[in-house]
Nucleic acid binder design. Structure first.
Lengths: 338, 338
DNA sequence: GCAGCGCTGGAAAGCGCTTTCCCGCCACGC
DNA sequence: GCGTGGCGGGAAAGCGCTTTCCAGCGCTGC
């Protein structure tokens, strides 16, 4: 059944030109080809339904049209927004996006990078947040080096210190600003549902939040760590309630965790914001439809994906560039006065 | 800077064996290689940090390790769940997923398929819902033929009639069952927020719903069409309210649309479910955290992605296989008695 | 004792494309 | 008239693999 694929050679032969000419016509090389031949080749290619073999091109050119995108979990709105931004830019550039999911396993990130290297991906965007685990970090760094030495570019979202281009959201500043605004609402006792202790993003947001409370002269918050997921937030919130803390306002370091936390509060009959105010971080799109609407720090997620893709596709110098994007505090119904 | 990539030839030379032997060792061909040589090659490859060039392999083998995944919008939970299922299966099979997004433009789907063909993708999962637009359909069909003739496999989620393997959710049956249960709650006047009139999925769900109402002896619903998105649901709901319809229960053909509709009702001060009951379809994960919890027809989205990937990766016969997955009506707080 | 077989290793022919290099041609300038 | 360039076209050498085909070798079976 499987009909042979049309090759460049067939097109060339049919059009009565050499392989070289056909190649030049169909790929806009620097070389000129006469109008007549050019036209003939184009027509024949069209007739035969010629589609260039990307593998062969990649091999001959020693560079492919693949762009890698590595996320922890594509169902997490944070990542899917970034993914949307990345794919938009990549597709506009005529490139193809390879999606890899790590399931939050650092070693999987290294594997994926290696696979992408095997495919001679032209670039890769690492959107997963980094841990502070030294060993994992150094393996990743080694793999990144291998990748860049081979000529590929790497950009990270939300994580510097890897010597790559990076788009960094104002995690610390955002946390700080949020804390101040919440303090201004009159809250005196705070709790934070932090992510895993070794996650840089979580730590930064927490650190910023603490700083903001300090600015406002409010006592440091009770911190409860949990998984960086909706269920992590749910569990952490339960733990908070069990702790008999007197907190009147809780900050979940991600919106997704905040959603879980709200579910827990609701189940336990804790009213938001009357009994407890709650705020998140990221402003994922699904927040539009929660009740009460969640206060948060807005990050332009899709745009961050676009920026990352832009960085990684634009040749750039040798310097690792860093683009900062600011978070904007958005107070909604989930936070009330105290 | 860009250090040359280690090639198989280098490994072979360093290990003192032929290219053929090295290749055989590093890829588990059918051929046996002596323990000693095998060991030596493996060690050298390890030392040199050899990573096979996937393009070259693809070219030589005439088949790549790419699997395409085409969705309309990766930020839509419906698609991201399916994507999660597909990537899981593909990654387990040692394949790499290429993500393409169409932005709901049919011609983009054709383009993507062509690109995937150029890359000699081994298979592709089409997750976007089909339209009834004849022209678009036939171009797509042609592209699918070209793809399969070249040896690739294609599976569709939620759409038959293309001669490919398919995973079909019980759209009609689900809509019907839902309608009956809602009717059983005592509602007499229904409205449906249908998707675009030419979307097969939307039509099927609507048709099923109508059939269910008929079963229950209830009058046909008022149907309002709108975009297949959250905002489409929002707009449609506003239109419904403006219509002065006496409906007490509204069915949005998608959870995402239902979310938008709930937002509209909330804004207009229409209480759910006291003033209006509402139900959706799909059971996307974000539903867990809406208030009131949305009644819906549960579809195992991730599993559907897994099944589709399974179909497409498993050689199978020439027959187009169809796997049906049933929807399960889940009544929650958004629907009340009347 | 030898044809024949099974098995392992290597040489080499591709896979489909890009790109270098060379050749012939023409327009020019002296 | 002839050397010089510039330019369009083609031959062919790869790109890094896989796989066929062949050579050699130690065995088995008659």
């Amino acid at each position: 059944m499987s009909a042979r694929q049309v090759t460049l050679a067939e097109v060339a032969k049919q059009a009565g030109v050499s392989l070289a000419t056909a190649s030049r016509v169909l790929n806009g090389s620097t070389r000129q080809v006469s109008e007549e031949l050019s036209e003939r080749v184009l027509r024949t290619a069209e007739e035969l339904g010629y589609v260039p073999n990307a593998s062969a091109q990649a091999l001959a050119r020693n560079s492919s049209s693949l762009v890698g995108l590595v996320v922890h979990d594509i169902t997490d709105p944070y990542f899917s927004c970034i993914a949307a931004g990345v794919t938009r830019v990549a597709e506009e550039a005529g490139l193809v996006v390879v999606l890899g999911t790590t399931g939050r396993r650092p070693e999987r990130e290294v594997e994926l990078l290696s696979t992408l290297r095997a495919h001679r991906a032209r670039a890769v965007v690492l959107a997963g947040s980094r841990t502070t685990d030294r060993a994992a970090q150094s393996r990743l760094a080694a793999e990144i080096d291998a990748f860049t030495e081979q000529g590929g570019r790497v950009a990270c979202v939300s994580q510097a210190k890897l010597g790559t281009d990076t788009v960094v959201p104002g995690n610390r500043a955002g946390g700080r600003a949020l804390a101040r605004e919440l303090a201004a609402l009159g809250h005196k006792k705070f709790a934070v549902l932090g992510g895993p202790a070794d996650l840089v993003v979580a730590r930064d947001r927490l650190a910023g939040f603490k700083a903001g409370l300090a600015d406002a002269g409010v006592a440091p918050p009770l911190v409860i760590n949990g998984a960086f997921t909706r269920d992590g937030g749910y569990e952490a919130a339960l733990e908070l309630l069990a702790s008999k803390s007197r907190a009147t306002c809780v900050f979940a370091v991600t919106d997704v965790m905040a959603m879980g936390a709200m579910a827990a509060l609701r189940e336990r009959g804790v009213r938001v914001p009357e009994d407890m105010s709650i705020a998140g971080f990221d402003d994922i799109p699904t927040l539009r439809d929660t009740v009460p609407a969640l206060s948060t720090v807005r990050l332009p997620l899709e745009e961050m994906g676009e920026i990352a893709a832009g960085l990684v596709l634009d040749a750039g110098g040798d310097e690792a560039r860093t683009v900062r994007v600011a978070g904007e505090v958005v107070l909604r119904a989930s936070t009330g006065h105290n």
